[in-house]
Design a protein around this nucleic acid. Structure first.
Length: 718
DNA sequence: GAGCACTGC
């Protein structure tokens, strides 16, 4: 029978606190059973009589697997009393009283039902991960419990370190701590910072292999590059050990962009226990922190770094930075399933304690690591979130004063407002427009949803649907070119090239070609495209078509070749629609060379990314005078990724708009009605928000800069 | 002439 989870002993206490309070923070360590048990406890005590219990998860797989387990424990069929809802898949029915869903789905639901009346309890699980969506939900819950004081309970589960902070955010709501079943972990620090953390990780793993008893080793590295290097060094290292001196070794890379056939293979090998007398070395990115749980891990080697994508609102540019991990992440390294796996296996009645080798001194950990990761909301472009909040049918949401747990910087919010204004989602006073409302219904970045609406007017909706869907899946489309796949590739790329107009057109043509072969998966692999990425595109396109159904002015079918011949060859309508959607992502070529300057709030010198299929003029070798871009990414230099050629006559009205833009009017928006908040409280809140925001920006910038400096110094040293 | 951690509607 099932093991009794610690949380069960707290049932009476939980119910007592929940009955007296609308909001409760539950701090449950890994292994406490909070994700599966809280909903069942509240169900047992009658909370499903007046509505459904919703439990949000940051990831799709978690929503599915946890609901499956709860259904099993309650002895019901999944999709009946217990169900889940994730994008593309709703497995709930009229009977459903416990519903697991991704936080993104709950946000969508509150668009059409802002009071979320169907729910009697909302549990925000894994809130410590601080996903963008969770942060927005935290703010929404704060106002929702005031609106529905009598009939809504909100529970927020978090890990140890920031429980107090969440409680303060919710006017010092009670905090309930439930112990977990963490296995004791011995932490070992290096005596000094390594000159090369790759070499240091190599040495540490071989030491473990030689000296320590059986148990797999999980090594956290920052990216594919380092993982491949370490894997090959480990292979050499293990081979050079004396035959029979220690057990066999299997070395496995684990990261998000492994080619699917290899990943399938590895998944089986990662998730099944190692064969006897054999130790596994799993060299992984942070995919192993949360998304995948590797069974059998006893030793963890922690480089202390992680790669993070950051958005800089003052330049509109993304960068991929190597930053220090936060202390809180450590808790994720030893998930409960490892302990359970050890117990099940029995290991001759002996459990061995975990060991974590940190490749840095303890003083470094104590003094330089921050408690928590910079929340996503402070390192993303907020155009989509701001549009979402503005479209919610609540009168008192003023975006610059919205109550966030960690407010984004004013700069970031203003950047979002400018973007939204340029694409007509809000008017010059910052009020959402009719266009903006329609855009918010589409599960797309604002630039792409605006493109769809414009395309509908231009008679090229079907093409725009394809482009938007392809861009939604873009990161999973192409095989990354590691040295291994490079060698294996037999045929040269034989894909359409966008006819010179750029990358959006190429993406369109690729999908149309796939349509021509009836979505044959082999066509994808033959052309070096990830099958799952293309299938995802197909799902997204279908979902977008369904949403556009009621307003569509033309066919939404993928174009056939015959139809295509009849159409203009210059994709003029589609490119015009793109220029409307990307009005805030526009660049003008420099007179004497092929560099561009962006035409936004702050002008940047940028170049077309070398991977682009945009073609230069055959005669003068020049790129088009004007392009729109999907994103700016700063790597070795600032680049525009995914560009599309546009006409000067379409650009002029945008430039006019840019000139008229007045950020003071835009951010004015609506003010908070007096009865909602007393004057003094408001002033204090605003001051606090402002100070928090300034501090957050400073903290973030200095932290990123310091980490980057240290990392670069180390790289050059070796 | 470059390179990309991980999620999600």
């Amino acid at each position: 029978m099932a093991v009794i989870l610690p949380i069960i002993q707290f049932e009476d206490k939980i119910i007592e606190i929940v009955e007296q309070n609308s909001i409760v923070v539950v701090i449950g360590e890994t292994g406490s059973g909070k994700s599966t048990q809280l909903s069942q406890i509240l169900h047992r005590r009658g909370y499903t009589k007046s509505g459904i219990i919703a439990v949000t998860q940051p990831r799709r797989v978690a929503a599915v697997s946890v609901s499956r387990r709860v259904a099993q424990e309650l002895g019901v069929r999944l999709g009946e009393e217990v169900g889940y809802a994730i994008r593309f898949e709703d497995r709930t029915s009229e009977k459903t009283c416990i519903k697991y869903l991704t936080d993104g789905v709950l946000l969508r639901e509150s668009l059409s039902n802002p009071e979320l009346n169907q729910y009697s309890v909302i549990i925000l699980d894994e809130a410590h991960e601080r996903s963008l969506n969770t942060d927005i939900l935290l703010g929404l819950m704060k106002r929702l419990v005031k609106l529905r004081t009598s009939n809504l309970k909100v529970l927020i589960t978090s890990a140890t370190l920031d429980g107090g902070k969440v409680s303060r955010f919710f006017s010092n709501c009670p905090v309930l701590t439930v112990p977990g079943k963490l296995f004791p972990v011995e932490i070992l620090y290096s005596s000094e910072r390594p000159t090369s953390y790759l070499e240091s990780a190599l040495k540490a793993s071989l030491d473990i292999h030689i000296r320590e008893p059986a148990g797999d080793i999980l090594i956290f590295m920052t990216g594919q590059d380092d993982i491949e290097k370490l894997v090959s060094k480990l292979e050499d290292g293990v081979q050079s050990l004396e035959e029979g001196s220690c057990m066999d070794a299997i070395i496995l890379p684990l990261h998000g962009s492994l080619p699917p056939e290899m990943q399938a293979n590895i998944e089986i090998r990662v998730f099944s226990p190692a064969p006897p007398n054999c130790r596994r070395f799993i060299v992984a990115t942070n995919i192993a922190e949360t998304s995948l749980t590797v069974d059998g891990v006893v030793y963890v080697i922690d480089s202390g770094y992680v790669k993070q994508r950051q958005y800089n609102p003052s330049t509109g540019m993304y960068s991929l930075d190597i930053v220090q991990i936060s202390r809180i992440l450590f808790n994720c390294y030893f998930p409960d399933s490892r302990v359970q796996a050890d117990q099940r296996a029995g290991r001759a009645g002996r459990t061995c304690p975990g060991k974590c080798y940190r490749l840095y001194p303890s003083i470094f950990y104590r003094e330089e690591f921050s408690d928590v990761t910079v929340p996503e909301i402070q390192r993303s472009s907020l155009a989509g979130s701001v549009l979402y909040l503005k479209s919610l049918d609540v009168p008192d949401i003023d975006i610059l004063k919205f109550d966030f747990l960690d407010p984004p910087s004013r700069e970031s919010l203003e950047d979002a407002l400018r973007q939204l204004y340029l694409i007509d989602a809000i008017d010059e006073n910052g009020v959402i427009t009719k266009v903006g409302r329609t855009m918010a219904e589409l599960p797309l970045e604002p630039s792409l949803s605006r493109t769809l609406l414009e395309a509908n007017e231009c008679g090229c909706l079907s093409q725009a649907l394809t482009v938007a869907a392809m861009l939604s899946a873009e990161t999973t489309l192409l095989h990354t070119r590691s040295k291994v796949t490079e060698k294996k590739r037999k045929h040269p790329q034989d894909l359409p090239n966008g006819s010179g107009w750029g990358d959006h057109i190429q993406l369109l043509q690729i999908y149309e070609s796939w349509d021509q072969v009836n979505y044959d998966p082999r066509w994808c692999s033959d052309n070096n495209l990830q099958v799952r990425g293309m299938l995802f595109t197909k799902d997204v396109r279908k979902q977008l078509s369904q949403i556009m159904q009621k307003s569509a002015k033309g066919s939404m079918d993928v174009q056939t070749i015959i139809k295509r011949k009849e159409r203009q060859k210059d994709y003029k309508n589609l490119r015009r629609a793109l220029s409307a959607g990307y009005a805030g992502q526009l660049a003008e070529r420099m007179t004497h060379h092929n560099g561009y300057r962006t035409l936004g709030f702050k002008q940047q010198l940028v170049q077309v990314h070398p991977s682009s299929v945009l073609q230069a003029d055959e005669e003068d070798g020049r790129f088009p005078d004007y392009v729109v871009y999907h994103e700016l990414i700063s790597t070795s230099r600032p680049f525009m990724r995914n560009v599309c050629s546009v006409e000067m006559s379409w650009v002029m009205p945008i430039l006019d708009k840019l000139e008229k833009l007045d950020i003071n009017k835009l951010s004015g928006g609506t003010s908070i009605p007096e009865d909602r908040l007393k004057g003094e409280e408001l002033a204090v809140d605003l001051q606090k928000n402002e100070a928090d925001a300034v501090k957050a920006t400073d903290d973030r910038d200095s932290r990123i800069q310091a980490a980057r400096d240290r990392f670069l110094a180390r790289k050059t040293n070796k």
